[in-house]
């Protein structure tokens, strides 16, 4: 009779297909554990340590990435604006507020894979905290726009989704889970070319 071998084959097929698919999906998804989330911004301060969860360890083994150590800094990323809508390269945005205390921070725009967005060299592609116009109270606002803007401006002209990355160097936020009230800037969508 063929019934028993067929059932065994079905069980094995489900086991391998399901096991492999769920593993790949779990690694490619964003980390769901040990995330430090402030508004839309997310950081994983433990991802490079021995205390990282097994998924974070598997993820860094597969991607081969080199993380920032705890005394070096902390990297915040967001793929959404403050309302939770996906960031789109054809829109313009205003990033306003303040960052957690740090010696220096750098903001850049990246693809969803983490590479810096392509932009001709003559346009500003990054902003760093030592080269920034601030309001008298220390807050700042950065415009992401395809058109040149006064004030702090990063050129945004990209087809499709993108992410914003802020790297804080030497920050107490890296060793902090709720001890200090951390603030990150808000991300507000202004208008879209195709709207």
């Amino acid at each position: 009779m063929l019934r028993t071998p067929l059932l065994v084959a079905l069980a094995l097929a489900i086991a391998f297909a399901g096991g492999i698919y769920s593993t790949i999906a779990a690694i490619e998804a964003d980390d769901a554990f040990d995330v430090l989330a402030i508004g839309p911004w997310e950081a994983t301060p433990l991802a490079q340590t021995d205390a990282a969860n097994p998924y974070a360890k598997a993820r860094r083994a597969r991607t081969g990435s080199f993380a920032l150590g705890q005394a070096e800094g902390l990297l915040f990323r967001t793929a959404a604006d403050s309302t939770g809508a996906r960031l789109r390269g054809t829109c313009s945005y205003r990033i306003a507020g303040q960052t957690p205390p740090s010696r220096l921070w750098v903001m850049r725009l990246t693809t969803t894979a983490g590479a810096t967005l392509d932009s001709p060299d003559i346009f500003p592609q990054t902003v760093h905290s030592n080269d920034l116009l601030r309001a008298p109270d220390g807050t700042f606002a950065v415009r992401l726009d395809g058109q040149a803007r006064s004030g702090n401006w990063i050129r945004l002209a990209h087809d499709g989704p993108f992410e914003i990355e802020i790297t804080l160097y030497d920050t107490p936020a890296a060793g902090n889970f709720g001890l200090i009230d951390l603030a990150m800037p808000s991300v507000e969508r202004l208008d879209c070319d195709d709207a």
């Binding site: 391998f16 399901g18 096991g19």
Partner: peptide, 16 residues
């Protein structure tokens, strides 16, 4: 099959 998938998932995550 589902139990096998779960075991395989855990094994692969830890072995990676």
């Amino acid at each position: 099959g589902l139990v096998g998938a779960l075991v395989l998932h855990i094994a692969m995550i830890f072995a990676l």
